[in-house]
Write a protein that binds this DNA or RNA. Structure first.
Lengths: 247, 247
DNA sequence: ATCGGATTGTAATCCACCTCACACTGGTGG
DNA sequence: CCACCAGTGTGAGGTGGATTACAATCCGAT
């Protein structure tokens, strides 16, 4: 619906903090690095930290009892994840895995809580982050219910374009490298079906795709085909550096 | 997973307020009543109020372009809805409809915002409400991806039991009256399929059902059949009355 | 360069579920 | 009390998409 929804990185949590507060957070936090494919946290771990991704890319996933992986979200540089930790006493029920090699800041939940108590702006920003994520999920839910595989995939591509779209000469290019299997895991379908549908879309001229690369050459037509507003022009990806990630 | 998830009504937003604050909110808010079936707000309306349901039952829905209604959530007495209004400038993209005749309090978004700024406890409680709802949606998402109609329906019944379950002699009884069509709208299936599956479950002895009435006679077996923790014992529904809804 | 695994392409088969069509039933309002 | 209609039950097709089974191709690592 609105591009705003995807601009989590604009809701800059840390710009609302005083220098003191940033320093304090910095002192209490721990930096960690993970190489591609490594898990950052696992289900049933205690949720006692909020994570800020300072570089790289991670995915938050869920394993069905039958062993299928459903991807709940991708998280980019500059975004938070694992936010439910501030509701003390929870345990993780999803897992997060580094897609590219990534570095994160682990912020203790108590520290975050403290901060929200003493700084209403931070509390508001935090609430907004959770709320926007919720809207994303709701949107995904309604794009899956009653929809065919084709429609689901098209919606997904448009959503990914909003979040990861990169304006190129030949169209809007996704700056994440996703396999057909990944796409299938996002829409609850199978690798083969995704392959076939992408093939159709390519022959219809709305996308170009190579190995783990996708370019939407005609996002407007794609959007119209699923009764959706054509996307606004996609912006160049701005480099985001959190206030205290300079060390 | 956790029962906590469903206890939105326990996250009592208003118990955290001072008498002054409650009075102020009360002064600025407006009461409204809606008879069953009437819309409370519609898509593309301006989202400038948060709603508190003081009595009745409402559902928040979404219409697909093809005219199918998907139900995002039911909201009970004592719960908030339309909370995204506090993110100023949004418009509704879902609609809410009274299921039973209902009365609501409309709280202006600015007022809510002000309150969050001056009272960290309220801010935290509000964040928690949004966060818990988000967890519900995420849970629903993962219960739909890759699952058969049967599994989806069983998960739904167990979820409904957690939210609306009422301990009776013959099992846990749902205190909401849902048609097969409603159930279908919740899992993205069809009325006929739901009818058939409910028939199976009845003959398997895990449920009893009459016209718009459902009793889970064997929730444990149901849960095990979809690899899910058996539900804790369901409580009697506590009557909830928000602090200032006494007028 | 070469090997091996990850990724993609394609096609045949099968089944769960949607669609359509119709009968039945109970409750609700006149 | 009766008529009407929302809600339910059931079955016969049709089909989208899962499953299964292989090739073909690309990329990265040794």
């Amino acid at each position: 619906m609105k591009d705003r929804m995807w601009c989590l990185k604009k809701c800059d949590l840390f710009s609302k903090m005083t220098a003191d507060q940033i320093q304090r957070i910095e002192a209490k936090s721990r930096y960690r690095s993970y190489s591609a494919g490594k898990p950052i946290y696992l289900p049933s771990e205690k949720a006692d930290s909020v994570f800020l991704l300072t570089s790289g890319l991670v995915k938050v996933c869920n394993l069905t009892p039958e062993g299928k992986e459903s991807i709940l979200a991708f998280v980019e540089q500059g975004e938070l994840f694992g936010e439910i930790a501030i509701f003390s006493g929870e345990t993780r029920d999803e897992y997060v895995e580094a897609v590219d090699s990534s570095t994160v800041v682990m912020i203790p939940a108590e520290e975050m809580d403290l901060l929200m108590n003493e700084n209403p702006d931070v509390a508001m920003a935090f609430t907004k982050i959770i709320g926007l994520r919720r809207q994303c999920i709701e949107r995904r839910l309604k794009n899956l219910l009653f929809k065919s595989n084709r429609e689901r995939l098209i919606h997904l591509l448009l959503d990914l374009a909003l979040q990861f779209g990169w304006a190129a000469e030949d169209g809007t290019r996704l700056r994440v490298r996703l396999s057909h299997q990944d796409l299938a895991n996002l829409i609850g379908s199978t690798r083969e079906s995704v392959t076939v549908i992408l093939g159709q879309l390519k022959s219809e001229g709305t996308i170009k795709n190579g190995r783990r690369k996708i370019v939407l050459t005609n996002p407007d037509r794609l959007a119209r085909s699923v009764h959706r507003q054509p996307p606004r022009s996609t912006s160049q990806a701005p480099r985001f550096v959190p206030a205290f990630a300079t060390g």
